[in-house]
C-alpha cells in the first residue's frame, strides 16, 4: 500500500537534487561542542530553553568532530590554541562550515597583542562572521540563519 492510497492524493512535488540536498543539510547542521571564552556562555544560552536553537535543527552538539558539520568558534583563539582549532577543523567530515562568533574570533577584537590570532580566518576558512562582544543569542541565531541561506544557495558544480 503506497502513501497515496493511505492518505489520499497528496500530489507530486518536483524539485532539483541540488535544492533537496541543500534543504536537508540546513535543518540538521550539528555544531561541534566547544567554546573558547565568554562567547561560549551566550552560545549555551542560545541553545537553552529561552532562545531554543532546536527550532532550527541545530541544537544537537556533537563532542566528536567526526560527527559535526558546523564549527562555531566562540571566543578568542590564542596562538597556542590555533593548531588545536585547525586540527579539529581538519578532523570534521565534509561538508563543513565555520561561524566566527564575536569580535575576537572575527578580527581579534580588543586583544591586539602577540598572544591572540587576529581573526580565526587566518587559520580556517570562515563562512559567517557574527559581530558583538559577546553577541546576543538573537545575533548568533541570525548568523546561523544567514549560514542556512548560504547553504541553500550552494551549487553542485562547486562541490569538490
Amino acid at each position: 500500500m503506497g502513501v497515496t492510497q493511505k492518505l489520499g492524493d497528496l500530489g507530486v512535488v518536483t524539485t532539483t537534487l541540488e535544492t533537496a540536498i541543500n534543504w536537508a543539510r540546513t535543518g540538521a547542521t550539528w555544531p561541534l561542542l566547544f567554546g573558547l571564552a565568554c562567547c561560549a556562555i551566550e552560545y549555551m544560552s542560545t541553545q537553552g530553553g529561552r532562545y531554543d536553537l532546536a527550532r532550527f535543527g541545530m541544537e544537537l552538539n556533537r563532542a566528536s568532530p567526526r560527527q559535526a558539520d558546523l564549527m562555531i568558534v566562540a571566543g578568542r583563539v590564542t596562538r597556542k590554541m590555533a593548531p588545536v582549532v585547525r586540527n579539529l577543523y581538519d578532523q570534521m567530515a565534509n561538508p563543513k562550515w565555520v561561524i566566527a562568533m564575536g569580535d575576537c574570533a572575527s578580527c581579534g577584537g580588543v586583544y591586539n597583542n602577540y598572544a591572540v590570532v587576529q581573526g580565526v580566518d587566518e587559520i580556517i576558512p570562515v563562512d559567517v562572521y557574527v559581530a558583538g562582544c559577546p553577541p546576543r543569542p538573537e545575533q548568533l541565531m541570525h548568523g546561523i540563519l544567514t549560514l542556512q541561506e548560504k547553504i541553500m544557495g550552494e551549487k553542485i558544480k562547486d562541490w569538490a
Binding site: 581579534g108 591586539n112 597583542n113 602577540y114 598572544a115 587576529q118
Partner: peptide, 13 residues
C-alpha cells in the same frame, strides 16, 4: 613577550 623591546601586537589597528 614581556620585554620592553618586544613588539606589542602583530597587526596594526
Amino acid at each position: 613577550p614581556h620585554r620592553r623591546d618586544y613588539p606589542l601586537g602583530y597587526e596594526t589597528v
